[in-house]
Design a protein around this nucleic acid. Structure first.
Length: 260
DNA sequence: AAAATCACCTGTCCGC
DNA sequence: TGCGGACAGGTGATTT
């Protein structure tokens, strides 16, 4: 699930729940999600610390702690957070933070594709991973620069975290649908006007998704996202949505509205 | 340089 | 009912 808008919603969820809480205990049920740190080091560092603040960069959620390090949470395809007092049979809980107020925060990740680590700073992490600028903080000039030379398809460019951080399969398809552009267009062949249109739609689509709390039922009728299924129809012209593979991912698009 | 392929994982759905 | 395969909103390494 988690692309930029989802992670932004998780951030707000953290702010409304586990933030400013003092950690009394940390349990690691699946150490595979921990990167560059052992379960025991992870636990001993976080115990007795407070969660102070949150930041988001691309698809990563950073939680500032009262110690030296930031907690980084990445959610893979199936991760999310759950704050609760009484566990009602939650499945796939990989990490569990207990707080002195009696509540707990679970990091849940069915497919174990998420990553959790401790980081010195966001900029260190961004440099190490060569991440591009966050999709919501990128300027038009920066986007034009990223799009200017590459022979990548536009779909690949938008999903390339080293060029733009935060877009994934779903929202990339939505941005290209809203822009009326076929996902296999070669980026450097796009006209200046089209590049600008994509840029505007990156911001518009992401902010709309956040506004809707990423609930597809709340999305505007003009959105492709709720139609992502075999029998889906274009909300604009009624044509059956097609699907193709691009760099290993399934792309959904309207063959009539999205031109090469 | 960019795309394809595989690997990492678990779970669900669909067709035979 | 059971089994096999396809597929799922991510990323990284390796191969074409």
């Amino acid at each position: 699930m988690p692309e930029l808008p989802d992670v932004e919603i998780f951030k707000r969820y953290m702010n409304a729940t586990a933030l400013h809480q003092n950690i009394s205990d940390v349990e690691v049920f699946e150490s595979k999600v921990l990167k560059n740190i052992s379960a025991s080091d992870f636990k001993s560092y976080l115990k007795k610390k407070d969660f102070l603040n949150t930041d988001r960069y691309g698809k990563n959620l950073f939680v500032q702690t009262s110690g030296q390090y930031l907690l980084r949470l990445h959610f893979g395809m199936t991760g999310f957070l759950k704050y609760f007092k009484n566990n009602n049979g939650l499945r796939h809980v990989r990490l569990l933070f207990s707080f002195t107020n009696g509540f707990k925060l679970a990091y849940i990740c069915q497919r174990l594709l998420g990553q959790v680590s401790l980081e010195n700073s966001i900029s260190d992490f961004v440099d190490r991973r060569n991440l591009g600028i966050d999709a919501l903080k990128m300027s038009l000039e920066e986007f034009q620069d990223a799009a200017g030379r590459t022979k990548q398809t536009i779909k690949s460019l938008l999903m390339d975290q080293r060029k733009i951080a935060g877009l994934g399969n779903i929202y990339t398809d939505e941005i290209l649908f809203q822009s009326g552009l076929h996902p296999k267009n070669i980026t450097k062949n796009l006209h200046k006007k089209q590049v600008k249109k994509i840029y505007k739609n990156i911001n518009r689509v992401l902010l709309h998704a956040i506004d809707c709390k990423v609930d597809p039922e709340r999305f505007d009728k003009s959105y492709l996202l709720p139609q992502r299924s075999k029998r889906g129809e274009c909300p604009r012209c009624g044509t059956s949505i097609e699907r193709i593979q691009i760099s290993g991912r399934t792309s959904y698009f309207c063959p009539k509205c999205q031109k090469k």
